[in-house]
Each structure stands twice: as C-alpha cells, then as structure tokens.
C-alpha cells in the first residue's frame, strides 16, 4: 500500500488523477523564484514557450535573456553571469544542454564550480511525435559523470517545481530534466523532497522498484497489479541521482533482495547504473533495468512509445517477476 508519510494525492492510482506536464512545474518554479530571489536570471535558446520559460519572461523581462539558437554561447554566458553573482537557469532541450554544449558545462561550468542551473526539457521517449532526434535519452549519463554536478530528476509537476527551487538553493552546478508530455500529477506540496534523499512511495518487501521521472507513477501502477498476484513490491522515488541516497537504496536491497530500476533514459550510464555501481560494492542483489537498451527512439504517441520500448507498467511488472526468479 501507499506509504502515508509520502503524502501522495488520494487519487494517485485512480483514472481521474490530473495529467500535467512536468515542464509546467519548471515554469511555476521560475516565476516563484523570480519573486523570491532577485539574482535569478533565465536564459533561453529560442524555445521560450516549450521550455515554459515564458511566464518568467512576462513577469521579469529585465532578467530574461533571449540567447537565440546558440547553446554553446548560452552555457557560458550563464557562467559569466554566475561568476558575477547571478543564479542563471539555462533553458533548452536536453539534447542541446547537455547534448551540444557538454564541453562548456564540463570546463566552464563544473571545473569552475560555477553556480549555473541547467534545465533539460523534452527528455525521455515520451517526447513523442518529434522522434528520436528530440528524445533526450543520454542526458543523465552525460551529467552525472561530471565532478561537482548535482543531478535531479522529478517525477511529476509538483516535484519539478520543488526541484527548481532546490536547484537555486544549491551553490554550484545543477542539472535537472523534465518532460514534454502530460503525466500524472500525484505528489502533493507535502510530499517530502530533499536533495540526496529517496522516498519510499509504496511499502513492500520482495522487490524494490527504484524509479526516477514520470515513470515512478507507472511503477506504482505495476506494484498495484503485482499485489493481486501475490508479489509485494516496494516503490522508491529516487529523484536525487547525484548525490544518491545510499542509505535508502542499501536498505531496500537488504530488505527486498532484488531491485528493478526504471527511467526514460538509456540503461547505460543512467540512474539504474548509479544504483548498480553503488550496490555492487555494498550489497549486490539481482537487478533488472527498465529503460532504453542501446537504441534510438522514433515518432509516435507517448503511450505507444512507452509500450513499444517497454517502459510502461506492464513491462515493469514483467521485470519484477523476472528478477524475483533470480533471487
């Protein structure tokens, strides 16, 4: 059953759960930050509407910088602003940040320990009809290898709002990602979120499903179906990929004895890899990985793509059964 202390919405598992894009949480968070912190500046590479930076542009036009389609320059103008007291949010698609300007992020952002916030929009397969070119499936791998970088992945619109605030509060480079498509808005303002913390959303003791991003909701649906088949799955929301909540993850491995990780990202180098790297040297257990297996996506509706590439509740349930057999 759902963990009460997670304070999820009552209709989390019903059909009437609100569907809202996580990127809207970024837009809300930015406008709130604009009010709270006068040194927050938003940079956008000609994608103001679709990254949801438009609200900030309307509210604080003097602190919004139109960068044009020049993402390398955008990343380092942000560094120049940060070195001079601003908190810049770099807004574009994740295929461009960190995809196109990774060298700028590595040297000028991270080696400098510049206080820049990189917001990656249009991540995961759920980007949909735009196809493989726009579906960022590598961004977590690209950012989590960088020293000094914090990497955060929100599961719904409210958590995206919280993460936008958390990014501003951290001193140093932060990457966080969000998605284009609508997804269940199931966490509440009271749902705990803290950098470096994973939160148990559903109790269980036979397998731990550790997930990040909107796919967390699919993991909850999968766990709900599994209980009818007599399988008790713990679902952990793991938004803080770096730093990782080692305590919660090790405890899950010890108590459940098997782990399935879920993310809309390449399996190589993603959140699941981070969990596997940690458990391999602390408490190794059988693992399965839900994510993209070394291929590009394609055009289609989000639900169709999630099904085809085995990132939906059904695929998660199947992975759980598979991993339990290996215990």
């Amino acid at each position: 059953m759902l963990n009460n202390s997670a304070k999820l919405k009552r209709n989390t598992l019903s059909k009437d759960v609100d569907i809202v894009a996580t990127r809207d949480g970024y837009g809300m968070g930015l406008v709130e930050l604009g009010e709270q912190r006068e040194n927050v500046v938003v940079l956008c590479g000609d994608l103001t509407e679709s990254t949801r930076s438009a609200g900030f542009r309307e509210a604080y036009p003097d602190r919004f910088i139109q960068m044009g389609v020049a993402e390398q320059n955008m990343a380092n103008v942000a560094v120049g602003l940060a070195l001079n007291g601003k908190i810049p949010f770099v807004s574009t698609y994740a295929v461009f940040t960190p995809g196109r300007n990774w060298d700028q992020i590595r040297i000028s952002g991270c080696y400098n320990n510049a206080n820049v916030k990189y917001a990656g929009a249009h991540t995961g397969i759920s980007v949909g009809p735009d196809g493989a070119t726009h579906q960022a499936m590598e961004d977590i791998a690209l950012t989590r290898v960088l020293p000094r970088m914090t990497v955060l992945v929100p599961c719904d619109v409210e958590e995206t709002r919280k993460i936008t605030h958390a990014a501003a509060a951290i001193v140093g480079p932060v990457y966080f990602r969000f998605a284009r498509a609508g997804s269940p808005a199931f966490t509440s303002a009271k749902t705990p979120f803290k950098v470096g913390k994973a939160v148990v959303f559903r109790d269980g003791d036979e397998v731990a499903i550790i997930a990040a991003g909107p796919i967390v909701h699919s993991a909850l649906l999968a766990a709900d179906r599994l209980i009818e088949q007599g399988v008790s799955a713990r679902v952990i929301n793991n938004p803080s990929i770096k730093p990782l909540d080692e305590k919660t993850i090790e405890q899950a491995a010890r108590e459940c004895g098997a782990v399935v990780t879920c993310e809309e990202h390449q399996v190589m180098g993603g959140m699941g890899s981070a969990v596997a790297e940690f458990l391999a040297v602390t408490y190794p257990v059988p693992m399965e990985f839900i994510g993209m297996h070394n291929s590009f996506g394609e055009s289609g509706e989000p639900a169709e793509l999630l099904k085809k590439y085995k990132m939906d509740a059904e695929a998660i349930a199947a992975a759980v059964k598979k991993v339990i057999k290996r215990k």
Binding site: N73, N76, N84, S108
Partner: peptide
C-alpha cells in the same frame, strides 16, 4: 577570474560578465 583551457569559451563568459554589469 575563470578556469579555462578548452578554446572558444572565454568570450561567452566575458559576455556574461559584461551583461551582469549592465544589469547591475
């Protein structure tokens, strides 16, 4: 004022510095 090595990055950082000065 800034770490550097990979070529082609410093002018953008300088632009950010100048822009911040203009804002302030």
């Amino acid at each position: 004022e800034s770490s550097s090595a990979s070529l082609g990055q410093g002018l953008s950082i300088s632009c950010g510095s100048a822009y911040a000065g203009q804002m302030d």
